[in-house]
Design a protein around this nucleic acid. Structure first.
Length: 479
RNA sequence: CGGGGCGUGGCUCAGCCUGGUAGAGCACCUGGUUCGGGACCAGGGGGUCGGAGGUUCAAAUCCUCUCGCCCCGACCA
């Protein structure tokens, strides 16, 4: 329950986020530093994210499976750049059942290696390909600086792992899954994202190519919201994932992996939230509508609750996720603020006047205050509510897109660049050298988030060194 | 690992300088009055003051050590 106001986003965006996550009961701190407890409201949101993604995965031929959390340490060490990338952040189990283990076990930071081991056994022929498996699990990475949802030691996600006969098929898969993430982000979460290619320095440890979707948060900073990797034949060679082709030749497979995590919840919070609290996109909100009954005494309570329960049943029958606030002893004003803080997209007020008039009050979360209230009749209420939810979903996407575009600049010299990345994104020419990438980071803390697919082919001067450049990179300060 | 800050009921903190055996607000419980934008009154429960050691007749307070957390600098979904 909310007890106090949040700091405003302008005052302290970071603190606004921290307090909101706790007060909205999305998550709580765990006894171990850097770990989080995902509370029921937060998990309900994650479940809706899972469903939206899972049906897209299934529709493209993927199946779910479960792999163990413990991985032999030697597995991690088989792929050179994979070890280098992950060894600093591994949690290692050295004792089991009171005995020191002959070989230490790592708690999976990701499952490429154990997948490689299994795929090597399962794949013999081109007829076994493609192999398209997804895992819903949690992984552990020993991070130094943590923040609820955005970066915790353990986090929940899905990781897809596929094996293919050719580079082209693997590349198609990698891009297809990024497209799915984009579609999910835009159409389910109302989070506008920029899909693109990562630079070599930002690539996944062990990948030939990493693609990501990048979103802008309410403070102008970037958040990587999902990634898809073309692993080439790196893991296939390290784990001997081979198949016999139609010509009877033994070939190494081409593999991919792709993931989206509970970090995305952080994106939803920071993209849509306002100074009153969360604003959840209707398609993912655990409760799409909250009914707040209003009455002064038992005399009024009976008819009000009867109507409220009937409305709830009607909405449920129309597949609308609805919550009836039946808590005792709270004033309506308190409930309004409480549910606004929790981001329920639509509030319905049902009081004695409504019982008398055959109407209810609807209040849109994206238009706070009394001004956003409208009176609607009970006739066709489920349809009215559904229509409002669709409108809110669209309004959130439009607002977030407008915000992001207004803070995405196209600087042409470094001084201008420096100013742009203080408050948003800079989309500008980059010559492709790691030196320029590093120099920009040193001087401004902004990194290349991705090289967007969408930029028109053109030529210009690198924002850092002024040398000829053939592509534009998206720069921003990142979470 | 370097720099800065903090550990006192569930939460935010006061008390520490100048030792005398623990307080406020919020939250929680009970009863009553309230209720269409964060109600009010009355009563009540809850803390070995992060931990260990020391000084002292007496330690939340002074001394030593230790543990933990938060913020800022090098990795990451």
């Amino acid at each position: 329950m909310a007890e106090q106001k949040l700091p405003t986003r302008a005052e302290d965006f970071s603190e606004w986020y921290n307090q909101l996550v706790l007060k909205a009961e999305l998550a709580d701190y765990a006894p171990v530093r850097g770990c989080m407890i995902v509370r029921p409201y937060g998990w309900a949101l994650w479940e809706n994210i899972q469903q939206a993604l899972d049906r897209r995965f299934k529709a493209t031929g993927h199946v779910n499976a479960a792999f163990p959390m413990l991985i032999p340490k030697s597995f991690i060490e088989k792929e050179k750049s994979h070890v280098e990338g992950f060894s600093p952040e591994l949690a290692v189990v050295t004792i089991g059942g009171g005995e020191k283990l002959a070989e230490p076990l790592v708690i999976r930071p990701t499952s490429e290696t154990i997948i490689g081991h299994a795929y090597a056994k399962w794949i013999q022929s081109y007829r076994d390909l493609p192999l398209l498996i997804n895992l819903w699990n949690s992984v552990v990475r020993w991070e130094l600086r943590t923040k609820l949802f955005l970066r915790t030691l353990e986090f929940y996600w899905q990781e897809g792992h596929t094996a293919h006969a050719t580079f082209e098929e693997a590349e198609f898969e990698t891009r297809q899954m990024l497209d799915i993430y984009t579609d999910f982000a835009v159409n389910e979460a109302a989070v506008p994202v920029i899909p693109g290619r990562k630079t070599a320095g930002e690539r996944f440890a062990g990948a030939d190519q990493t693609y990501s979707i990048e979103a802008m948060m309410g403070d102008g900073k970037a958040l990587q919201a999902g990634t898809s990797h073309n692993l080439g034949q790196n893991f296939a060679k390290a784990f001997e994932i081979r198949y016999l082709d139609k010509q009877g030749q033994l070939q190494h497979c081409w593999t991919t992996s792709w993931g989206l995590s509970t970090r995305f919840i952080g994106a939803i919070i920071m993209v849509h939230g306002d100074d009153q609290g969360l604003i959840l996109p209707p398609r993912l909100a655990p409760f799409q509508v909250v009914i707040v009954p209003i009455f002064k005494n038992d005399e009024e309570k009976g008819p009000v609750m009867d109507l409220a329960r009937k409305i709830r049943a009607d909405l449920v029958a129309s597949d609308i996720r609805v919550k009836l606030d039946e808590r005792d002893g709270l004033t309506p004003g308190f409930r309004f603020n409480d549910w606004e803080m929790r981001g329920v997209p639509l509030r319905m007020e049902v009081g004695p006047k409504d019982v008398a008039k055959g109407s209810v009050v609807l209040a849109r979360r994206d238009r706070p205050g009394r001004e956003g209230k409208t009176f609607v009749t009970l006739d066709g209420l489920p349809a009215t509510v559904s229509k409002a939810l669709v409108e809110i979903q669209a309004a959130l996407l439009a607002r977030a897109t407008q915000f992001r575009d207004s803070k995405t600049h196209h600087p042409t010299d470094f001084a201008e660049f420096r100013t742009c990345v203080e408050s948003g994104f800079a989309l500008c020419f980059w010559c492709g050298s790691e030196a320029c990438e590093a120099r920009a980071k040193e001087q401004t803390k902004a990194t290349i988030r991705c090289i967007p697919f969408a930029t028109e082919p053109a030529n210009g001067a690198c924002i850092v060194c002024g040398q000829p450049a053939a592509e534009k990179a998206l720069f921003g300060k990142a979470y």
